[in-house]
Amino acid sequence: MLTIESLKEFGADTVSGLQRCMGNEALYLRLAGSVAKEPGFDKLKEAIDAGDRSAAFDAAHSLKGVLGNLSITPLYNKAAEISDALKAGEDRDYAALVGELTALKDKYAALI
């Protein structure tokens, strides 16, 4: 069961996240809870595996938006790193980066 406390512990900026939800805790927790099932994670992995950097960027960019709005900082930071790198056309080990993101996501999903 996801709580404000567990989110905080995970590293989320729950103050900002709650503010964006106009203080509506139930809404915030429900939306934060949906993140683990966010299809963007799979899409990003598939695109990277297939070598489709454009599709990968779209997926990373979407994740970045959602995670940013909910202020789930550790996940947001990693998604932003991937998104920004893809956008800049940097040659990085994207499979490894996605692996790190997936690991964080799994840790997050465990909270739920």
Binding site: R20, L31, S62, V66, N69, L70
Partner: peptide, 13 residues
């Protein structure tokens, strides 16, 4: 917006 989370946050606002 294609992201439900974004839609809901903004809609709530």
């Amino acid at each position: 917006d294609d992201e439900m989370v974004n839609r809901e946050i903004l809609g709530n606002i």
